[in-house]
Every structure is written in C-alpha cells, then in structure tokens.
C-alpha cells in the first residue's frame, strides 16, 4: 500500500462575518497518497481557498482531523505549524511572490534560511540544484525584476522544491501566465510528478484537470466529485501543438 501523505477527516471550517456564521467547509474527507497529482477544482466561493489554506497549515479547521505526513495538524500551535510548513510543504502562488530585487538563488534558498539545520554552503548547493531541476541553471544570479513571468514562476517552483517537501501546493499557479507559458509550467509540474512528487493544484480552470491524475471538485464547501483521470494528457504534446508565435 502506498504511503498516505494527506488525510482529511470531516473537516469543517466556520467563519464569523459580523453576527453571521459562514460555513466555508462543511465536512470534507479525502486522502491523497504519495506521488499523486491532484487538481482541486471549484468556482469562487466553493471553499477551495479555505481548503488550500487548511492543507497548507496556514489555517486550522474548526473541527475534523487533518494528518499531514502522518502528523495531526489540528492540535498544533502557530509556531509548530510554521515549522511544519517549512519542512513539509512547498507553496507556489499565482503571483509568484518572489522577493523584489533579489537573485533567483537567494529567492530559492529562502525557506532554508528558516531552518537552522543547513549551512550557507548547503543552502547554496540545494538552491542551485532546485533551479537546475526547473531548467533555470543558467539564470542563478538573475534578479526577480529581470525575469519573465514564466521564469519567475519557475523560480517560485524551485523555491517550493528546495526543502524537499512532502507535498507541493500550487494556487492558480498558471493564472497569471499566457497559454504557452502556462503549458511550459504544466510540463514542469508533470515532470516533477513523474519524479514522484505529490502535487496539489488548486484552480478554477477545468483544462488543467485533464493533465493531472485525479480531480476533486468542490461546491459550497463540500466535495461533489472525486475522480481518477485514466487518460492523462501530456502537456509537452499540447505545447508543441500550439501554433508558433511570430512577431
């Protein structure tokens, strides 16, 4: 049996807005095993952002149990969750969230700076390795403002990879990119998946789902469908099928 990376048991999350209570998540249960590429789909207001925050240990559920890599997250305090994020999770955001005027290598080694285990030399080596893995081995010293959107997102992916996390959480990671660059990033995600990484991709774009191995759809804080995709499309093929742009 494959290792369970994520396990949600009847997760509920309520928010108080004024005097009203909003039920963002109304009892969500699923588990994700190592090496899956899961797309979490849902329209806005479906609760997918709240679910992402919960999965990312940024938020704690009102009730229910969440196990990340076998560890119960619900009873953890703020600092423990920060450390857990540092060791087990890699975030990729829609707007990249790179540090301004900072080189690719410095951006990538950032998570390692918050882990006293690594020396300066180790941080450098790991950052270079992660950047090579996303195909930016030749742009180590480029600053974030000298890079294109696709390059910046690849730096962000390298940053998510560098601590060798249990799961990579991507939040609309292609949302700010044009079609071609989106496919390039998808190719990268598929490559990471093929190397055995566990990836959770949160999006409202149904197209993305056909490149992942499993799709979970949310609606009004509940899972409405959870399907394995038996016909995973190859993003590299789709990329080469795109009409070549000419200026």
């Amino acid at each position: 049996m494959e290792k369970e990376v994520i396990r949600l048991e009847n997760i509920k999350r309520d928010f108080k807005v004024g005097s009203e209570v909003v039920h963002a998540l109304r009892g969500i249960s699923f588990s994700i095993t190592e090496g899956e590429f899961v797309t979490i789909m849902g329209t806005s207001g479906s609760g997918k952002s709240t679910l992402l925050n919960t999965l990312g240990c940024l938020d704690t559920p009102t009730s229910g149990e969440y196990y990340l890599d076998g560890v119960s997250v619900r009873s953890m305090n703020k600092d423990q969750r920060a450390t857990l994020r540092n060791r087990k999770i890699g975030f990729v955001f829609q707007n990249y969230n790179l540090l301004a005027k900072t080189t690719a290598i410095e951006n990538v080694e950032l998570p390692l700076l918050y882990n006293p285990k690594y020396s300066k030399k180790e941080r450098q080596e790991m950052a270079v390795e992660a950047l090579k893995a996303v195909g930016l081995g030749d742009r180590l010293e480029h600053k974030s403002n000298q890079m294109s959107g696709g390059q910046m997102q690849r730096v962000a992916i390298a940053r998510a990879l560098v601590n060798n996390p249990a799961v990579i959480l991507a939040d609309e990671a292609t949302g700010n990119l044009d079609t071609r660059t989106s496919f390039e990033v998808l190719v990268l995600f598929q490559k990471l998946h093929s190397e055995g990484r566990t990836i959770i991709f949160v999006t409202h774009n149904p197209e993305i789902a056909s490149y992942s191995t499993r799709t979970i759809t949310l609606r009004d804080g509940k899972v409405t469908s959870d399907e394995y995709n038996h016909n995973v499309l190859d993003a590299a093929e789709a990329l080469s099928a795109l009409p070549v742009e000419k200026d």
Binding site: L58, A82, T83, R85, R87, N97
Partner: peptide
Amino acid sequence: TREIGLRMSIGAKSRD
C-alpha cells in the same frame, strides 16, 4: 505585507 505573508508561509515564525 506580501513579503511577510510569504515568509510566514514558507516557515518563518512570528518571532522571526
């Protein structure tokens, strides 16, 4: 603010 949010999401504690 965004930078602080990012640092927190990748593992910076409040005291950091």
